[in-house]
Design a protein around this nucleic acid. Structure first.
Lengths: 124, 124
DNA sequence: CTAAAGTCTGACGCCGATGTGAGAGTCAAG
DNA sequence: CTTGACTCTCACATCGGCGTCAGACTTTAG
């Protein structure tokens, strides 16, 4: 199928699909005209990509781990031990971000609570 | 004091101090030479700015609410009711971000857990 | 054959706070 | 006076995942 159909079927913009290719997440065939030609399996691949992006992974990291999910292979590739390591690392940094946000939020709460009464001596 | 000293005393880079001025968060005097001349109170102001940035506020929003904390005024300015509204809005969006990150994290957890056994049918 | 719809590459814009570097003027100590 | 440290003002670069426009070509329906 061509890029427009893939976009429709996955709900992902054409621009994004081209971007994923640029990031080596997709590698569609090319027609003589230059048009990209995707296969059925790419629908699933794109969904996986979206899932991983939604999980906060960068396309760079996804490029490294995507092959572990690829194709009809029943068992993950041997490099998938590395994958788990990578993902765990990503998870760690996400946890850190959440912690940052939490403390930021409580800080903001303190400011909000303090404001109405005495706003001149806020948490410094 | 000049910018270098303020940078040292606050732990904020010179670049950032100039940026804060550009964003109307600071308004140092100028020497005939063009050198910025800060006063003691600016040390505290910079710390407040850093606190608010750490709390996830943009410099634009900080510019709107910073005067509520300013100077020796015991009571906040009348516009500080608006301030609380703004801050509350900021807090909302922060809460939303935290929620996003949480769901992303659990999604990542699912992927990690699923990987070692059957990585070909991950949450799509 | 023609027009409309689809696709191509390339490239700039965005957001926000900050790093970095160039080229030039300023200040303080010897 | 000289040197070295400090500061000044532009202004471009960064990060990430896209949006969007321009100009040119391809495909498809009528």
């Amino acid at each position: 199928m061509r890029i427009g159909e893939l976009a429709r079927r996955t709900g992902v913009s054409i621009r994004s699909l081209r971007y994923y290719e640029e990031q080596n997440l997709l590698a569609p065939q090319r027609r003589p005209s230059g048009y990209r030609e995707y296969e059925e399996g790419d629908v699933l691949v794109v969904r996986r990509i979206r899932t991983l992006i939604a999980a906060g992974l960068t396309t760079e990291l996804i490029a490294q781990v995507l092959h572990c999910f690829r194709g009809d292979a029943e068992t993950p590739e041997p490099t998938c031990a590395e994958m788990v390591t990578e993902l765990a690392t990503a998870r760690e940094s996400m946890a850190a971000k959440i912690e940052d946000l939490r403390s930021s939020q409580s800080l903001l709460d303190m400011i909000i609570d303090a404001a109405p009464k005495e706003a001149d001596e806020v948490a410094v």
